[in-house]
Computed example of a mutant assay.
Amino acid sequence: MLHQEIVAKGYGGHYQRVKMAIAPLRRGLPIDTPRERPPSPRQVARWISTTPPRRGLHPTEALRRLLEHCPELDQTHTLVRQFAAMLDARDAAPLPDWLDQLVASGLSSLASPANAIREDRLAVVQGITTPFNSGVNEGRITDLKL
């Protein structure tokens, strides 16, 4: 009955959806408030890697709530922002201490990149300190490979 009434007013959804929506009301329970969809790992990575002033209000608030509930992610966020500060300032002096922090963090997913960076430290320092990059060349090489 209700489904027919709202279909007449333009609702295009299925009967079962309406039935599920009003089921709590029939049992005398309150209707649940809509829950926010959890962010995808890709969204969280984007929020962490984006400079805070360039993030929108919603992503900033969502990231803050997420970091409050996940200390490992909060630690990762701090380390990523420290590396970003090195890139922005083109200062590789903090790199050895930062690599030690990666290893000391206890997060195995960060220890492996720390070891790889240590092995190629001179190239990483060069990449941090110079304004030059090989992005255009890398893009063309990728195009050729494809």
Rank of each mutant, 00 (worst) to 15 (best):
S112L: 12
P96R: 01
S105E: 05
A123V: 07
S105Y: 04
L122P: 03
D91C: 09
L102A: 06
D91L: 08
S109W: 13
S105Q: 04
A116T: 03
D100F: 14
D97Q: 01
A104S: 11
S108W: 10
Q101L: 12
P96Y: 09
S109L: 07
S108K: 10
D91N: 14
I117L: 10
N115R: 08
P96G: 06
S109A: 14
D100L: 13
D120A: 07
W98F: 06
A89Y: 15
A92H: 10
V124H: 03
G106A: 05
S105L: 07
R118T: 10
V125Y: 04
L99I: 13
A104C: 06
A111F: 04
P113Q: 03
A114D: 03
L110T: 06
A123L: 15
A111H: 02
S109N: 07
V103R: 09
Q101R: 13
L122D: 15
G106W: 05
L95Q: 02
Q101K: 08
W98R: 02
L102T: 04
V125M: 07
D88G: 11
L99S: 03
S109T: 14
V125G: 00
A123F: 11
D100K: 11
S112C: 02
A92P: 01
L107H: 04
I117H: 01
A89N: 10
A116R: 12
L107V: 15
D120N: 11
A89C: 03
Q101D: 13
L110F: 14
L99R: 04
R90A: 07
P113G: 03
A123G: 08
D97E: 09
